[in-house]
């Protein structure tokens, strides 16, 4: 086997090239706007994108088993709206309880989806499309044409403003995100459950024959996704200091995009926590950076879309170049 040069290793690793892209981006923006790399700014970016970053972890697992979930923002809205209403009508007061309820709701929503996909053998795109309608509908039903504003949320909204979880160090929202990332990193790399996820995504038939309970793994993955969506429902309500039934509509594509940019394959079996993190960071840096370099915020989505297309096309082109080089090196 040929020894790979360091350069080849770096360009071959998606994660490595993303780090380089991120560094280049940050440098470029900082040149134009020196404030960009300030601690305050960085923390602000992280806080505002925490929801997408956390959900990207769940989507990572879903994509790893070769599935997809477009219902996540509906679950998020359903969970967030429910606790929003509970706060509004003084049914609950404690922040912890709010988070617990939202997360539990998300888990149940995800479980239902998982069972239908894994045991009902419904294709993920169809199942999650159906639930996208259903859960969003539930969110509207719970709202009853109302919404929960800042005053209704009381002390709940202060969650995002305080640093209590990390004993005063960093914002709570960011702490939650960091904890999630650490947990997922460990589970996916060092536990049997995590490796089974990769196995199912790489070759579900082989996994079945190996004795892995593929249906259980699939159900678990969608449940995890739902749990994170529920958690983010509470988080988003706190961050935006409001709960509305149309929270984060269409943002599920952002979550998927973060994973795709991060090198997660839609065919399953390939992708990493680091990749998802970098993908989400690249996206959030770009959106924050655009106005600072003079591009109107209105063009944000277009740029985001163009970048996604560019990334995936570039991926293909580099793969083709590598294949071509491989062929040319063959001695005939």
């Amino acid at each position: 086997m040929e020894k790979k040069s360091l350069l080849k290793k770096i360009t071959g690793s998606r994660e490595a090239s993303l780090v380089i892209v991120l560094i280049v981006l940050c440098i470029a923006v900082t040149i134009k706007s020196p404030n960009f790399m300030s601690a305050q700014n960085i923390l602000e970016i992280l806080k505002n994108n925490a929801v997408i970053m956390i959900m990207a972890l769940g989507m990572l697992c879903v994509l790893l088993i070769g599935g997809i979930d477009i219902s996540i923002t509906s679950t998020l809205a359903f969970a967030g709206m429910t606790i929003g209403m509970m706060y509004k009508y003084d049914m609950i007061e404690s922040t912890l309880l709010g988070f617990a309820i939202a997360t539990a709701m998300g888990a149940v929503c995800g479980l239902l989806i998982g069972v239908i996909i894994a045991y009902g053998k419904v294709m993920p795109i169809i199942a999650t499309m159906g639930f996208m309608y259903i859960y969003r509908g539930f969110a509207y039903l719970v709202a009853q044409d109302q919404w929960a504003g800042a005053d209704a949320l009381g002390s709940f909204k202060d969650f995002t403003l305080s640093n209590s979880l990390s004993f005063g160090l960093i914002n709570n929202t960011i702490t939650v995100a960091i904890v999630c990332y650490i947990v997922f990193f460990i589970v996916l790399k060092w536990t049997k459950f995590g490796r089974c996820i990769y196995a199912v995504g790489s070759n579900a038939e082989a996994a079945e024959i190996s004795g892995i309970n593929v249906a259980a793994i699939k159900t678990a993955v969608y449940t995890i996704m739902g749990t994170l969506a529920g958690l983010c429902g509470a988080l988003a309500t706190s961050v935006y200091a409001s709960a509305q039934p149309n929270m984060l509509t269409s943002k599920e594509m952002d979550v998927i995009a973060a994973c795709v940019i991060g090198g997660v394959s839609m065919n399953g079996g390939r992708g990493s926590v680091l990749g998802a993190l970098l993908g989400a960071l690249v996206l959030s840096v770009i959106s924050k950076a655009l106005p600072l370099v003079g591009i109107n915020a209105i063009a944000q989505n277009t740029i985001k879309g163009v970048i996604i297309v560019a990334v995936i096309v570039l991926n293909v082109l580099t793969q083709r170049m590598m294949d071509k080089a491989n062929l040319e090196s063959r001695e005939m």
Binding site: M253, A257, Q300, N301, T302, G305, V306, I308, V309
Partner: peptide, 8 residues
């Protein structure tokens, strides 16, 4: 990708 670009 094109979904985001076209609407953008």
């Amino acid at each position: 990708g094109t979904q985001i670009v076209f609407r953008g």
